[in-house]
């Protein structure tokens, strides 16, 4: 958690213009629903190898921003680059193909599937996902499937939930579901993983477990962008932290700087303090 951040802690960086190697770059994103402006000229970047936090009071537009980045919403204006490729307006599965995988705020359960099956949806470009290949190259399908099964088993073990493999995916607790989601996302081998409130509704023990897993995966090279309301969780995990308020980026910096910033306090307390 004592990650070395470049330069002086409190300085703001203009989105995208900073030097470095951004996995994700967002510039001037704008989205309005009727008269309500949900995202207003939001710009920031996520550097490779970081765990970047995204916080903001309720209604600040965090989830909208996630949806804009991952392709679920089309922005009215602005651009999104993933790994140097412009993915503005692309369909979610195209964005995913560029290495950006997201999870959802409310856990999505796969009815009628075991955890093992649910895990196997994660890997990208499986040979057996082509209808024709099932008939023309069954051996390639079998090889791919065998490799993915092994990978799923290994990752479940790494997450210490190997014993859940045979369980129906709908029978898990909230925390276990989040772990499975994270494990499945890892099977997609993402460059950047967007986590939408990974510990909402998760008991503290599992939350610590999730934090440890996220750190482990980050050490292994995955970049994270995390929305979270649990400040204790996020501040100990993320660096830098981006603060969103009323649809635009209020500030960005290491957690200590964010915590002590007056504008952030104002934003959370509605400007009264």
């Amino acid at each position: 958690m004592t990650r070395v951040s470049d330069g002086d802690g409190g300085t703001e960086r203009a989105g995208g213009s900073a030097a470095g190697d951004p996995v994700l770059r967002v510039e001037g994103l704008h989205k309005a629903f009727g008269g309500l402006v949900a995202t207003d000229d939001a710009s920031f970047a996520v550097e490779r190898g970081t765990i970047t936090g995204l916080i903001g009071p309720n209604g600040a537009g965090k989830s909208t921003l996630f949806n804009l980045i991952s392709g679920f919403y089309d922005p009215d204006d602005g651009r999104v680059w993933v790994d140097g490729t412009d993915v503005t307006g692309a369909a979610p599965h195209d964005v995913a193909a560029h290495g950006l995988i997201r999870t959802f705020q409310t856990p999505r359960k796969l009815e009628g599937m075991t955890v093992r099956e649910a895990m196997l949806v994660g890997p990208q470009d499986q040979p057996g996902e082509s209808f024709l290949s099932l008939f023309t190259s069954p051996t390639a399908v079998a090889d791919g499937e065998r490799a993915n099964l092994a990978a799923a088993e290994r990752i479940l073990e790494e997450f210490e939930i190997g014993h859940l493999a045979d369980q129906p995916a709908t029978d898990l607790s909230g925390g276990q579901t989040k772990l499975v989601e994270l494990a499945r996302a890892m099977l997609a081998e993402p460059e950047l993983l967007l986590l939408d409130e990974p510990v909402a509704g998760v008991n503290p023990t599992l939350a610590n477990e999730l934090a440890a897993q996220i750190r482990r995966l980050n050490d292994a090279g995955t970049t994270f962008l995390v929305i979270e309301h649990d400040m204790g969780f996020l501040m100990s995990l993320a660096d830098p932290v981006v603060v969103l308020d009323q649809g635009s980026v209020l500030m960005e910096g290491p957690p200590e700087a964010v915590r002590s910033d007056e504008r952030v306090v104002d934003a959370y307390l509605g400007g009264g303090a």
Partner: peptide, 28 residues
């Protein structure tokens, strides 16, 4: 044959949650 396959699995995922399938890179 086609159902017990990665292809059939994607269909089942779409049935359960189409957004999730998209988020996992499947052209639903």
């Amino acid at each position: 044959r086609v159902h017990r396959s990665p292809w059939g699995r994607v269909l089942r995922t779409i049935r359960a949650d189409e957004d999730l399938a998209e988020a996992l890179g499947k052209d639903t």
